[in-house]
Design a protein around this nucleic acid. Sequence first.
RNA 1: GGGCCCAUAGUCCAGCGGUUAAGACGUUUCGUUUACACCGAAAAGAUCCCCGGUUCGAUCCCGGGUGGGCCCACCA
Length: 814
Amino acid sequence: MELPQNYDPKIAEPKWQKYWQEQKVFQFKPKSKAQIYSIDTPPPYASADHLHVGHGMHYSQFEFIARYKRMRGFNVFFPMGYDDNGLPTERYVEKKHNLDKSKISRKEFIKLCIEDTKITGQTYHDLFTRLGFSIDWNLLYHTIGDKARRVAQISFLDLYKKGRLERTDYPTMWCTTCQTTIAQADLGNVDITSHFNDVVFKCGGQDLIISTTRPEMLSACVALFYHPDDARYAQLKGKFAAVPLFNYEVPILSDESVAQDKGTGLMMVCTFGDKDDMEKWHKYMLPLRITIDEAGRMNQLSGKYAGKKLKAARAEIIEELKSVGLLIRQQQITHAVNTHERCGTEIEFLKKPQWQIKVLDQKEELLEIAQKVNWYPEHMKVRYEHWVKNLQWNWGISRQRYYGVPFPVWYCKKCRGILLPEEKDLPVDPREEKFKGKLNGKCSCGSTEFIPEMDVMDTWMTSSCTPEINADWGGKKERKDFLPMSLRPQAHDIIRTWAFYTLTKSYFHHHNIPWRNIMISGHGQDPHGQKMSKSKSNFIVAQDVIDKYSADAFRFWAASVKLGDDLPFQEKDVLTGQKFATKLWNASKLSLKHLEGYHPKNLNKPLEVFDKWMLSKLQKLIKLSTESFDQYEYSKSKAEVENFFWHVFCDYYLEIVKDRLYNPEKRGVKNRQSAQLGVYQGLLNVLKLMAPIMPHITEEIYQLYFAGKEKKKSVHAADWPEANEKLIDGFSEGVGALGVDVISTVRKFRSANQMSMKDELQEIVLVSELPDFQKKIALIIDDLKAVMKVKELKFEGETTLESETFKIQVGIIK
RNA sequence: GGGCCCAUAGUCCAGCGGUUAAGACGUUUCGUUUACACCGAAAAGAUCCCCGGUUCGAUCCCGGGUGGGCCCACCA
């Protein structure tokens, strides 16, 4: 058949995307008996206008797997979710509308959040569609949606029942910008230059020097500490020291944890400068002097500094200490401080009642459960282990925010009891609804006056339940036996959050792994290997690249890096993908033209050697590609298929069989059919092997011819190729290699002599020491003569060129 | 300070205990060949980061450096 001259992805890609949806090619079939392959798709934060090429790369990498598994016959469960609850969304909305939560009502704010997440949802839908993602959109969920809220609340109730939850007012990390408690996993850190300030505390007549980076915390000081073995300070035992500027006395105590060589070996403990302060405060039952408020301002305890921001207060306090001679030295230092990763604000510590999930007592179990998951690449597991081993805090899940899943909790005004709803009533919003419960809306103490929990849950509280959301936990359509899922795909930056939290939840809820396999992608970077960010203006929008080239070309680029490795964005690699698609189109034009009326059954003679040569290589390719995909090494498969198609199938095979295809009267009908079989098998299998990476162009060609032969509605619903061991043929590969060597040498000769490839050569004389050389060449002599455009091929005579295996002589017809 | 990953032509990368170290982009030369100039043919371009060790043999394995990326910790 004749194909159109050109392939236009701008028309073809949307066409097939529409076709796939209409034909429900990607639909999960709940009643199917086929084995399920389920993917715990990362729900992107609904907090961006555009996705950059790095996102597109990461998402493409597991999309390859989805398509591969579908062709392998699995009933693929490939959902999409939008993570549109919680702080990331709130921050996005705050920035976009230039507001902060204290200046807007909860209701108005939530309304804005809902509006904006709708827009981003549409943006994502469009992008994923344009990328050719084989998502079953029926499975879409929103983490702010009813289903996800129900699951998060069931999770809460279950954890409560299992004793994994506690509500305490033990000091926690606090972000003064976002004005909420945060968890250890939300921390980032940044190196800052600061000063060690040597400050004088008075003890009797004695000057005690304390080195501190945070003099603004002086008013929060509750004790001084030294090491019990430190002879310099032993005589201070039991004494009190006066806090400079604020003039109140604090006890001087000793503790093993004090480093004698740090600063002056004498330290102050404040409520609270850091985690260490907290521990000493707790251990020695020290008084509480909280001197900052939620917004990071000094409070009344700081006297005249009240109302000042921490940094301003620090500068003023330093000045005043200097002026009264109590600051005797300043030393510049660089040190890392913890920040809230999302906004970059240095963290503080406040004492707030909050819910937390106890994880510190289960480190061993959480390490163990991770062993049962297959990690791809394996070394990413180390990052998880490292994180778990170094955990310092339980997982605080309360956020003093608006837009998130509410806690399913009321508190009894009278007895202070905790009131939880029944599972059947979930999801609930205690801020809006009355408590129902088992006792007709009464507390067990008889009271009917309740206070709702006003906080919302950490966004990870929901997203850590994506397997359960996909399983519709507690819902009418709950998929029993759905867990563990088959695959968790994600990038490496959220191992400590998403992977960790999901494993934790799954262990606590089900004592099981959440998924059998986890594949971890690297990051797409800018062309210079730098992380992409809007502030650095090196942000390359995925949609732009797709518009300029095609989704297939973009995916081709995304498939060019090993799983887990970072990849600089190189536009030329996208262009290479585009060229590959064109080449595939052109090779198909030739191939399909010659497959008209072709039936494999017509052939009742052995295949020609060059056909066997190509088919043998093809079988090996199929094997390798399959093994690679099974190990989530799509890049290896892509590279090998690319190489085979271009350099074996096009550069040699198609050139070799052209003569047989065009001239059956001269070369014989059977020999033409042998070539047809090769072309059919070669092209079909290349299409299939490439289909997961370049779904559109392969579909276009498949539909033009093969769909009718194979009776499948899509190449993506077709069977993945299986290697035929019988076609693996060492002898033919050897003879073919010999032939390729001859062809290549003659091409060199032409090139060296500035000859056109079509100029006919009179004679080539081959001379070789190889055993059976003549016999072997005889098997392919007609193909050789045709492809080399040479009249006579002989085996003796004078030589003018050399290769390792033979010598040839060439004469030219003019 | 600890950990993980990486180091191969100008660039991006593949690979492997013995290879003429693969491919792509770029460069140079040639070629309007009936699938394709988004092409074909050919050429040039690599101390395979450095130093040791194991081995008959190392780019590949081991140890130690150096450089880069990432993660974690330090934060009185």
